[in-house]
Write a protein that binds this DNA or RNA. Structure first.
Ligand SMILES: [Zn+2]
Ligand SMILES: [Zn+2]
Ligand SMILES: [Zn+2]
Ligand SMILES: [Zn+2]
Lengths: 158, 158
DNA sequence: TGTTTTTTGTCAATCATTTCTAATTTTTAT
DNA sequence: ATAAAAATTAGAAATGATTGACAAAAAACA
Protein backbone atom coordinates (compact mmCIF):
# COMPACT_ATOMS: atom_id res chain seq x y z
CA UNK A 1 0.00 0.00 0.00
CA UNK A 2 2.95 2.31 0.37
CA UNK A 3 6.10 2.64 -1.71
CA UNK A 4 8.99 0.40 -0.87
CA UNK A 5 11.63 1.99 1.28
CA UNK A 6 9.25 4.14 3.29
CA UNK A 7 9.02 1.80 6.23
CA UNK A 8 11.12 3.11 9.06
CA UNK A 9 13.72 1.12 10.86
CA UNK A 10 14.41 3.72 13.52
CA UNK A 11 13.67 7.33 14.42
CA UNK A 12 16.68 8.70 12.64
CA UNK A 13 15.46 7.26 9.38
CA UNK A 14 12.32 9.31 9.53
CA UNK A 15 13.81 12.60 8.44
CA UNK A 16 15.76 10.90 5.65
CA UNK A 17 12.66 9.13 4.49
CA UNK A 18 10.52 12.23 4.35
CA UNK A 19 13.33 14.17 2.74
CA UNK A 20 13.73 11.48 0.08
CA UNK A 21 9.99 11.56 -0.47
CA UNK A 22 10.10 15.31 -0.92
CA UNK A 23 13.07 15.05 -3.26
CA UNK A 24 11.19 12.60 -5.47
CA UNK A 25 8.04 14.68 -5.54
CA UNK A 26 9.99 17.80 -6.36
CA UNK A 27 11.90 16.05 -9.13
CA UNK A 28 8.63 14.93 -10.71
CA UNK A 29 7.69 18.56 -11.14
CA UNK A 30 11.15 19.74 -12.08
CA UNK A 31 11.88 21.42 -8.76
CA UNK A 32 15.01 21.15 -6.67
CA UNK A 33 15.65 20.27 -3.06
CA UNK A 34 17.50 23.39 -1.90
CA UNK A 35 19.03 23.93 1.54
CA UNK A 36 16.20 26.37 2.35
CA UNK A 37 13.55 23.81 1.48
CA UNK A 38 15.43 21.13 3.36
CA UNK A 39 15.75 23.34 6.43
CA UNK A 40 12.06 24.25 6.37
CA UNK A 41 10.90 20.65 6.19
CA UNK A 42 13.42 19.75 8.90
CA UNK A 43 11.85 22.27 11.26
CA UNK A 44 8.36 20.98 10.60
CA UNK A 45 9.49 17.40 11.21
CA UNK A 46 11.30 18.40 14.41
CA UNK A 47 8.15 20.11 15.66
CA UNK A 48 5.57 17.53 14.81
CA UNK A 49 2.33 18.08 16.71
CA UNK A 50 3.04 21.79 17.18
CA UNK A 51 0.86 23.42 14.53
CA UNK A 52 3.35 26.23 13.97
CA UNK A 53 2.42 29.34 12.00
CA UNK A 54 4.55 30.88 9.27
CA UNK A 55 6.34 33.38 11.50
CA UNK A 56 7.16 30.69 14.03
CA UNK A 57 8.53 28.45 11.31
CA UNK A 58 10.50 31.39 9.92
CA UNK A 59 12.06 32.09 13.31
CA UNK A 60 13.04 28.46 13.81
CA UNK A 61 14.40 28.00 10.29
CA UNK A 62 16.44 31.16 10.72
CA UNK A 63 18.39 29.60 13.55
CA UNK A 64 19.89 27.04 11.20
CA UNK A 65 19.72 29.11 8.05
CA UNK A 66 20.12 32.76 9.11
CA UNK A 67 20.21 34.21 5.61
CA UNK A 68 16.79 32.88 4.63
CA UNK A 69 14.08 35.40 3.76
CA UNK A 70 10.49 35.38 4.93
CA UNK A 71 9.20 35.27 1.36
CA UNK A 72 11.18 32.10 0.77
CA UNK A 73 9.54 30.50 3.76
CA UNK A 74 6.11 31.46 2.42
CA UNK A 75 7.01 30.07 -0.99
CA UNK A 76 8.42 26.91 0.51
CA UNK A 77 5.41 26.23 2.71
CA UNK A 78 3.17 26.68 -0.31
CA UNK A 79 5.33 24.22 -2.22
CA UNK A 80 5.41 21.67 0.59
CA UNK A 81 1.64 21.92 0.75
CA UNK A 82 1.32 21.35 -3.01
CA UNK A 83 3.64 18.35 -2.72
CA UNK A 84 1.34 17.13 0.04
CA UNK A 85 4.17 16.93 2.55
CA UNK A 86 2.34 19.28 4.93
CA UNK A 87 -1.18 20.59 5.47
CA UNK A 88 -2.37 24.11 6.06
CA UNK A 89 -4.57 24.53 9.14
CA UNK A 90 -6.88 27.46 9.70
CA UNK A 91 -7.81 28.14 13.30
CA UNK A 92 -9.40 31.52 12.62
CA UNK A 93 -6.62 33.24 14.50
CA UNK A 94 -5.53 35.34 11.56
CA UNK A 95 -2.67 33.25 10.30
CA UNK A 96 -1.97 29.97 8.58
CA UNK A 97 -0.55 27.09 10.51
CA UNK A 98 1.06 23.96 9.15
CA UNK A 99 1.65 20.40 10.19
CA UNK A 100 3.44 17.41 8.79
CA UNK A 101 1.21 15.07 6.86
CA UNK A 102 0.74 11.61 8.19
CA UNK A 103 1.71 9.43 5.28
CA UNK A 104 -0.22 6.53 6.65
CA UNK A 105 -3.56 6.84 4.90
CA UNK A 106 -5.43 5.08 7.70
CA UNK A 107 -4.64 7.71 10.26
CA UNK A 108 -5.60 11.16 9.17
CA UNK A 109 -6.28 13.17 12.27
CA UNK A 110 -8.44 16.15 13.06
CA UNK A 111 -8.54 18.80 15.72
CA UNK A 112 -10.38 19.55 18.91
CA UNK A 113 -9.86 23.23 19.67
CA UNK A 114 -10.43 24.49 23.19
CA UNK A 115 -12.21 27.83 23.05
CA UNK A 116 -10.93 28.66 26.50
CA UNK A 117 -7.19 27.96 26.45
CA UNK A 118 -6.56 27.36 22.76
CA UNK A 119 -5.16 23.89 23.25
CA UNK A 120 -5.33 21.69 20.20
CA UNK A 121 -6.07 18.04 20.73
CA UNK A 122 -5.55 15.66 17.86
CA UNK A 123 -8.08 12.95 17.23
CA UNK A 124 -8.28 10.16 14.71
CA UNK A 125 -11.54 9.81 12.89
CA UNK A 126 -11.76 6.60 10.96
CA UNK A 127 -15.50 6.82 11.36
CA UNK A 128 -15.62 9.64 8.86
CA UNK A 129 -15.00 7.20 6.05
CA UNK A 130 -18.48 5.73 6.36
CA UNK A 131 -19.87 9.23 6.16
CA UNK A 132 -17.90 9.90 3.02
CA UNK A 133 -19.24 6.84 1.26
CA UNK A 134 -22.76 7.92 2.08
CA UNK A 135 -22.15 11.43 0.79
CA UNK A 136 -20.50 10.21 -2.41
CA UNK A 137 -23.58 8.13 -3.15
CA UNK A 138 -26.20 10.69 -2.16
CA UNK A 139 -24.64 13.70 -3.85
CA UNK A 140 -22.70 12.10 -6.69
CA UNK A 141 -19.64 13.93 -5.40
CA UNK A 142 -16.15 12.45 -5.47
CA UNK A 143 -14.51 13.28 -2.15
CA UNK A 144 -10.77 13.84 -2.23
CA UNK A 145 -10.17 15.34 1.18
CA UNK A 146 -11.90 16.76 4.20
CA UNK A 147 -11.23 19.15 7.04
CA UNK A 148 -12.94 18.74 10.37
CA UNK A 149 -12.69 20.94 13.44
CA UNK A 150 -14.49 20.55 16.74
CA UNK A 151 -14.77 23.53 19.04
CA UNK A 152 -15.42 23.25 22.74
CA UNK A 153 -13.92 23.13 26.22
CA UNK A 154 -11.07 20.83 27.17
CA UNK A 155 -10.86 18.83 30.41
CA UNK A 156 -8.41 21.27 32.05
CA UNK A 157 -10.72 24.21 31.49
CA UNK A 158 -13.68 22.82 33.39
CA UNK B 1 -37.42 22.81 22.37
CA UNK B 2 -37.56 26.28 20.85
CA UNK B 3 -38.85 29.51 22.29
CA UNK B 4 -42.50 30.28 21.83
CA UNK B 5 -43.23 32.61 18.97
CA UNK B 6 -40.44 31.32 16.78
CA UNK B 7 -42.53 28.90 14.81
CA UNK B 8 -43.30 30.37 11.43
CA UNK B 9 -46.77 30.73 10.02
CA UNK B 10 -45.63 31.89 6.59
CA UNK B 11 -42.56 33.06 4.68
CA UNK B 12 -43.12 36.70 5.48
CA UNK B 13 -42.91 35.94 9.17
CA UNK B 14 -39.40 34.61 8.78
CA UNK B 15 -37.63 37.94 8.55
CA UNK B 16 -39.64 39.37 11.44
CA UNK B 17 -38.90 36.33 13.52
CA UNK B 18 -35.17 36.43 12.93
CA UNK B 19 -35.14 40.16 13.44
CA UNK B 20 -36.95 39.79 16.77
CA UNK B 21 -34.52 37.10 17.74
CA UNK B 22 -31.61 39.41 16.94
CA UNK B 23 -33.24 42.28 18.83
CA UNK B 24 -33.56 40.13 21.93
CA UNK B 25 -30.02 38.86 21.74
CA UNK B 26 -28.67 42.35 21.26
CA UNK B 27 -30.70 43.68 24.17
CA UNK B 28 -29.27 40.99 26.43
CA UNK B 29 -25.81 42.40 25.81
CA UNK B 30 -26.87 46.04 25.87
CA UNK B 31 -26.62 46.55 22.12
CA UNK B 32 -29.14 48.20 19.84
CA UNK B 33 -30.84 47.13 16.64
CA UNK B 34 -29.78 49.95 14.33
CA UNK B 35 -30.93 50.41 10.72
CA UNK B 36 -27.48 49.32 9.53
CA UNK B 37 -27.63 46.10 11.53
CA UNK B 38 -31.18 45.50 10.38
CA UNK B 39 -30.25 46.03 6.72
CA UNK B 40 -27.26 43.70 6.97
CA UNK B 41 -29.26 40.86 8.47
CA UNK B 42 -31.98 41.48 5.87
CA UNK B 43 -29.52 40.94 3.04
CA UNK B 44 -28.22 37.74 4.55
CA UNK B 45 -31.76 36.43 4.98
CA UNK B 46 -32.67 37.39 1.41
CA UNK B 47 -29.63 35.53 0.11
CA UNK B 48 -29.86 32.36 2.09
CA UNK B 49 -27.76 29.59 0.56
CA UNK B 50 -25.43 32.05 -1.17
CA UNK B 51 -22.35 32.08 1.09
CA UNK B 52 -21.65 35.74 0.38
CA UNK B 53 -18.37 37.36 1.32
CA UNK B 54 -18.03 40.68 3.10
CA UNK B 55 -17.62 42.79 -0.03
CA UNK B 56 -20.63 41.15 -1.64
CA UNK B 57 -22.72 41.79 1.45
CA UNK B 58 -21.47 45.37 1.55
CA UNK B 59 -22.48 45.94 -2.08
CA UNK B 60 -25.97 44.54 -1.50
CA UNK B 61 -26.53 46.38 1.76
CA UNK B 62 -25.45 49.60 0.07
CA UNK B 63 -28.37 49.38 -2.35
CA UNK B 64 -30.82 49.81 0.52
CA UNK B 65 -28.59 51.80 2.79
CA UNK B 66 -26.21 53.82 0.57
CA UNK B 67 -24.58 55.76 3.38
CA UNK B 68 -23.30 52.66 5.18
CA UNK B 69 -19.54 52.26 5.51
CA UNK B 70 -17.52 49.09 4.92
CA UNK B 71 -16.17 49.16 8.46
CA UNK B 72 -19.71 49.09 9.79
CA UNK B 73 -20.46 46.01 7.72
CA UNK B 74 -17.36 44.33 9.14
CA UNK B 75 -18.39 45.27 12.66
CA UNK B 76 -21.94 44.15 12.08
CA UNK B 77 -20.99 40.77 10.64
CA UNK B 78 -18.73 40.23 13.62
CA UNK B 79 -21.60 41.09 15.91
CA UNK B 80 -24.11 38.89 14.09
CA UNK B 81 -21.62 36.05 14.36
CA UNK B 82 -21.20 36.63 18.10
CA UNK B 83 -24.98 36.67 18.50
CA UNK B 84 -24.97 33.37 16.61
CA UNK B 85 -27.32 34.67 13.96
CA UNK B 86 -24.81 33.84 11.21
CA UNK B 87 -21.71 31.70 10.76
CA UNK B 88 -18.39 32.55 9.24
CA UNK B 89 -17.22 30.17 6.53
CA UNK B 90 -13.63 29.84 5.40
CA UNK B 91 -13.13 28.38 1.95
CA UNK B 92 -9.44 29.27 1.72
CA UNK B 93 -10.17 31.80 -0.99
CA UNK B 94 -8.73 34.72 0.92
CA UNK B 95 -11.92 36.15 2.40
CA UNK B 96 -14.56 35.37 4.96
CA UNK B 97 -18.00 34.29 3.87
CA UNK B 98 -21.15 34.20 5.93
CA UNK B 99 -24.41 32.35 6.00
CA UNK B 100 -27.57 32.50 8.05
CA UNK B 101 -27.66 30.05 10.91
CA UNK B 102 -30.25 27.35 10.82
CA UNK B 103 -32.04 27.76 14.13
CA UNK B 104 -33.30 24.21 14.01
CA UNK B 105 -30.68 22.34 15.98
CA UNK B 106 -31.35 19.08 14.15
CA UNK B 107 -30.26 20.40 10.79
CA UNK B 108 -26.84 21.92 10.88
CA UNK B 109 -25.38 21.58 7.44
CA UNK B 110 -21.90 21.34 6.07
CA UNK B 111 -20.21 21.92 2.75
CA UNK B 112 -18.99 19.94 -0.20
CA UNK B 113 -16.62 22.16 -2.14
CA UNK B 114 -15.86 21.31 -5.76
CA UNK B 115 -12.15 21.87 -6.40
CA UNK B 116 -12.85 22.24 -10.10
CA UNK B 117 -15.72 24.73 -10.38
CA UNK B 118 -16.01 26.04 -6.84
CA UNK B 119 -19.61 25.01 -6.41
CA UNK B 120 -20.71 24.62 -2.83
CA UNK B 121 -23.13 21.84 -2.07
CA UNK B 122 -24.82 21.79 1.30
CA UNK B 123 -25.19 18.52 3.13
CA UNK B 124 -26.82 17.58 6.39
CA UNK B 125 -24.79 15.43 8.71
CA UNK B 126 -26.82 14.01 11.53
CA UNK B 127 -24.34 11.17 11.68
CA UNK B 128 -21.73 13.46 13.13
CA UNK B 129 -23.56 13.46 16.43
CA UNK B 130 -22.55 9.88 17.14
CA UNK B 131 -18.97 10.84 16.45
CA UNK B 132 -19.21 13.73 18.86
CA UNK B 133 -20.47 11.54 21.68
CA UNK B 134 -17.56 9.20 21.12
CA UNK B 135 -15.06 12.05 21.14
CA UNK B 136 -16.54 13.62 24.26
CA UNK B 137 -16.10 10.34 26.08
CA UNK B 138 -12.65 9.46 24.76
CA UNK B 139 -11.07 12.88 25.17
CA UNK B 140 -13.08 14.37 28.02
CA UNK B 141 -13.77 17.33 25.76
CA UNK B 142 -17.07 19.18 25.76
CA UNK B 143 -17.97 19.84 22.13
CA UNK B 144 -19.86 23.05 21.45
CA UNK B 145 -19.61 23.27 17.68
CA UNK B 146 -17.90 21.80 14.67
CA UNK B 147 -16.93 22.77 11.16
CA UNK B 148 -16.68 20.17 8.44
CA UNK B 149 -15.65 20.64 4.85
CA UNK B 150 -15.32 18.01 2.14
CA UNK B 151 -13.22 18.76 -0.92
CA UNK B 152 -13.62 16.95 -4.20
CA UNK B 153 -15.19 16.95 -7.64
CA UNK B 154 -18.89 17.54 -8.23
CA UNK B 155 -21.04 15.58 -10.66
CA UNK B 156 -20.98 18.29 -13.34
CA UNK B 157 -17.19 18.35 -13.38
CA UNK B 158 -16.72 14.70 -14.29
C1' DT C 1 33.55 28.02 -19.88
C1' DG C 2 29.55 30.52 -21.12
C1' DT C 3 24.45 30.18 -21.28
C1' DT C 4 20.00 29.17 -19.53
C1' DT C 5 16.91 28.02 -15.81
C1' DT C 6 15.67 28.00 -11.09
C1' DT C 7 15.74 29.86 -6.73
C1' DT C 8 16.61 33.29 -3.52
C1' DG C 9 16.65 37.73 -0.60
C1' DT C 10 15.10 42.27 -0.33
C1' DC C 11 11.75 45.34 -0.59
C1' DA C 12 7.53 47.14 -2.32
C1' DA C 13 2.67 46.22 -3.18
C1' DT C 14 -1.71 44.10 -2.15
C1' DC C 15 -5.71 43.29 0.14
C1' DA C 16 -8.81 41.86 3.86
C1' DT C 17 -9.56 43.47 8.20
C1' DT C 18 -9.07 46.58 12.24
C1' DT C 19 -8.40 50.80 14.56
C1' DC C 20 -8.87 55.74 15.18
C1' DT C 21 -11.44 59.87 15.33
C1' DA C 22 -14.74 63.11 15.14
C1' DA C 23 -19.58 63.42 14.14
C1' DT C 24 -24.20 61.58 14.84
C1' DT C 25 -27.71 59.21 17.16
C1' DT C 26 -29.69 57.26 21.24
C1' DT C 27 -30.21 56.90 26.18
C1' DT C 28 -30.26 58.68 30.68
C1' DA C 29 -30.45 62.06 34.24
C1' DT C 30 -31.99 66.40 35.65
C1' DA D 1 -37.86 69.23 27.61
C1' DT D 2 -32.67 69.91 28.10
C1' DA D 3 -28.12 68.73 29.03
C1' DA D 4 -24.71 65.27 29.81
C1' DA D 5 -23.26 60.44 28.96
C1' DA D 6 -23.11 56.30 26.15
C1' DA D 7 -23.37 53.84 21.88
C1' DT D 8 -22.88 53.78 17.02
C1' DT D 9 -21.44 55.37 12.80
C1' DA D 10 -18.68 56.91 8.34
C1' DG D 11 -14.52 57.69 6.58
C1' DA D 12 -9.76 57.61 6.71
C1' DA D 13 -5.62 55.68 8.28
C1' DA D 14 -3.18 51.76 10.10
C1' DT D 15 -2.27 46.94 10.45
C1' DG D 16 -0.60 42.61 9.27
C1' DA D 17 -0.42 38.41 6.62
C1' DT D 18 0.65 37.27 2.16
C1' DT D 19 2.21 38.03 -2.65
C1' DG D 20 4.70 40.18 -6.49
C1' DA D 21 8.73 42.38 -8.72
C1' DC D 22 13.37 42.19 -9.59
C1' DA D 23 18.14 41.78 -9.60
C1' DA D 24 21.63 38.68 -7.68
C1' DA D 25 23.13 33.93 -6.64
C1' DA D 26 23.08 29.02 -7.39
C1' DA D 27 22.42 25.00 -10.17
C1' DA D 28 21.83 22.61 -14.48
C1' DC D 29 23.06 22.53 -19.14
C1' DA D 30 25.81 22.72 -23.42
ZN1 LIG E 1 -8.76 24.38 27.52
ZN1 LIG F 1 -2.74 18.32 14.05
ZN1 LIG G 1 -17.67 21.24 -10.04
ZN1 LIG H 1 -23.95 26.62 3.63
Amino acid sequence: MFEKGYYLRNEGDKVDNLMDMLKEKLKEKGYKLTPQRRATLDIIIDNQGQHLNTEEIYALVKEKCPEIGLATVYRTLQLLDEMQMISKINLDDGCSRYELNDHDEDHQHHHLICESCGTIIEVELDLLEHLEEEIEKNHDFEIKDHKVKFFGICSKCR
